[in-house]
């Protein structure tokens, strides 16, 4: 029992930060991953090495980067390379985790950031891949963060911008993709992983105040439920303090 108050995005950031381990290298995508990565670094993972697609590596930002090319992504960086270099080093095996957002993710962890509706006659034209496709193809494993709504978690995405397990078991290997693929999906309702046999998305934990049934209602496909499904631990006072005072005091992301 606790009276700690937090917003959905704050919870997302805290849960995401906990997924990153000290000493790992993380390819950070734009949006909420920027917050999760910085929070992790300020909490339990001071030796986490962040990599950004503009070519920045391992900065020590004083403020939250507002972009993956923002000056804070190379503040006190020991080395600044180029875009093709950082993706090349990722393929070479130097990056453990890819940390992404996106508009839609499906039951196999495929991400759409290109269009809603038919590609040739889209209802909404989105940004396109950016570095997301490369990050998910080349990093050892991938964490996705986003809001949890039925249209954002459809059975199949309208366009596969960024590869998850494509159409199921063995598909990544057949396609020739080096990374192991999606590992965790963090939404404002829960945390999902993927079933090893079927490659389908599986609920691992539900956030405080949410039930697995509710999460199923907000998901556009049948969600598998892990046998050890449990409630996600709430953000601690310390996590929220660092998030609000040091990571995102201007509420750029966590509003």
């Amino acid at each position: 029992m606790s009276d700690i108050q937090y917003t959905p995005r704050e919870l997302l950031a805290c849960v995401a930060a906990r997924m990153l381990k000290d000493g790992e290298s993380v390819f950070v995508g734009t949006g909420l991953p920027l917050v999760g990565a910085m929070l992790a670094k300020k909490m339990h993972a001071p030796n986490m090495m962040a990599v950004y697609e503009c070519g920045a590596i391992d900065p020590e930002p004083r403020q939250l980067p507002w972009s993956v090319s923002c000056p804070w992504t190379y503040y006190k960086a020991p080395v600044i390379l180029s875009m093709s270099s950082v993706f090349g080093h990722t393929r070479a095996g130097y990056v453990d985790v890819g940390f992404l957002g996106g508009a839609q993710i499906d039951m196999y962890g495929n991400i759409n950031a290109t269009c809603i509706g038919d590609y040739h006659n889209p209802k909404v034209r989105l940004t396109g891949s950016g570095g997301a496709n490369d990050i998910a193809s080349l990093c050892d494993r991938v964490i996705f963060m986003g809001l949890h709504l039925p249209e954002r978690l459809p059975e199949r995405v309208d366009y596969i911008t960024t590869p998850g397990f494509l159409d199921g078991p063995g598909a990544r290997e057949r396609a020739g993709l080096p990374g192991r693929g999606p590992w965790r999906v963090i939404t404002h309702l829960g945390v999902m992983g993927f079933d090893e046999e079927t490659c389908r998305m599986k609920l691992l934990s539900y956030h405080p105040g949410v039930t697995p049934e509710l999460i199923q209602q907000f998901t556009g496909f049948e969600l598998l439920i892990d046998e050890n499904v449990h409630e996600t631990p709430k953000p601690t006072e310390e996590e929220l303090r660092i998030l609000r005072e040091e990571v995102d005091p201007n509420q750029l992301f966590c509003f």
Partner: peptide, 10 residues
């Protein structure tokens, strides 16, 4: 020859 974009609609 690279390992990006494989398997996707790109």
């Amino acid at each position: 020859a690279c390992k990006s974009m494989l398997g996707t609609d790109i």
